[in-house]
Simulated assay, not measured.
Amino acid sequence: MTFILSLLILFFGVPAVHADRGELVSSRLRQHLTAPEAAAAAYPAGRVNSACPVDLYVLVYRTLDGKGKEVSASGAVAVPVGSPPVPVVSIQHGTVFGKDDVPSRLPVHLLADGIVFAASGYLAVMPDYVGYGESSASFHPYLHARSLAASIVDMLKAARTFSERKGVRTDGRLFLTGYSEGGYATLAAHREIEERHPGEFRVAASAPMAGPYDLMLTLDLLMRRGSSGSVPYLAFAFGAYDRIYGFGRLRGIIRDPYRSRVLRLLDGPQSGKAFDSALPDKGGAQLFEPAFLSGWKGRGAKRVKAAARENSLTSWKPEAPVAFFHCKRDSLVPVENAKAARASFKARGAADVRLVERDLGDHGSCFAPLLAEARSFFDSFGGGGE
């Protein structure tokens, strides 16, 4: 038996085992909010009728980057003080360009999405993702399903260890939600948990909001429409995939001088304003090489399209209920992709998949009202203790 095992190792190598994934490296109390303070901080994301006090912590933990290398990452945890056993909700943030524009570092008044859940009796877990906050990685693997899911699942593991050490009791239910990139990350984490961690966590329900779940469809619509508003996000996505899949440092994809600017900004971009100012303001026709743009619209750009298809999240069957929330007039993340995701899940036999469409404006104005609906959706399963 030993001889056979030795031969297997010789010919196939030793599979990577990341024993430290999800290890809690450190935790620190950032702020205590009294019940009135918690209710006030939560208000931008929704009213809490009977708020409880909230302790806000920062966690650092071990996870994987876009190439499977072990790195550290950080996030925030909002703990309802003095509550009975509570459900856990993981809240995934949307696209940010600045390393500090994440839950572990944002001021409390900008963490209303997490505070509103914690003040209502949920343990709110808010990952920063790899490349942000206190992460040892400088690069964020944007819209890369595997590493986003890993950073969320490993944060949940670290939060579980933290809760046990602090005597915070949870009731075994896990809810997942997020907006924009966070909606995409939510669905990626839901798939990861059900397919690879079914004995560790039980997803009670997920509520992805305004995310590009059918990534190939979303990118195709944006590339064909060519609006200036999508330029930073397309540059971020293709730049991230270049780092992960090796497209030759974006040669043949993004024109100079923008190509060198994108490559520089990927290593810790400082702000959305810096990203915007480094890129053209007249749409994709000015950003992309003409041959790449025409190839995308035809049968070319095969490697980039393959990466987009690999990172689409529609080819599986969720077991726990999923409610997609999306605004009809969203021009940045078109609702067509949420419709495609729902149709795909239903075709695969998923029992409870919903799509809630609202006419509340464009991408930037829909977050707060859709979050309130996601919270009501979770409350219908017993929710928190409010």
Rank of each mutant, 00 (worst) to 15 (best):
M1V: 13
F3T: 09
I4C: 09
L10D: 10
P15W: 13
H18D: 13
D20G: 13
G22M: 10
Q31R: 08
A38H: 00
A42R: 00
P44W: 08
P44E: 03
G46S: 08
N49T: 05
P53N: 02
Y57Q: 06
R62Y: 07
T63W: 14
K69E: 15
A73G: 09
A76C: 09
V81H: 01
S83Q: 15
V89C: 11
S90M: 13
T95V: 04
K99Q: 12
V102C: 05
P103Q: 11
S104G: 07
R105I: 04
L106W: 03
V108C: 03
G114C: 09
S120M: 11
G121W: 01
A124F: 05
P127A: 07
Y129D: 10
G131H: 08
S138V: 15
F139P: 05
A145T: 04
V153K: 07
D154H: 13
L156C: 12
L156F: 09
F162E: 10
S163A: 15
G178D: 07
Y179W: 04
G183Q: 01
L187P: 01
H190S: 00
R191D: 05
E194A: 12
E195T: 15
G199Y: 11
A210G: 03
L219Q: 01
D220Y: 00
G226D: 14
S230Y: 12
P232M: 02
G239W: 11
I244F: 14
Y245W: 10
G246W: 10
F247D: 06
R249D: 15
R249T: 13
R249M: 11
S260N: 12
S260F: 06
L263P: 08
L265P: 08
L266A: 13
D267V: 10
Q270N: 11
S271I: 06
S271N: 08
K273H: 11
A274D: 14
K282A: 12
G283F: 05
G284S: 15
Q286F: 12
Q286S: 15
A291G: 09
R303C: 03
A306L: 02
K317F: 05
A320T: 10
P321S: 12
A323P: 01
K328Q: 12
R329P: 01
R329W: 09
F345P: 02
C366Y: 02
A368N: 14
L370W: 05
L370Y: 02
F377G: 06
F381P: 04
G384R: 12
E386R: 11
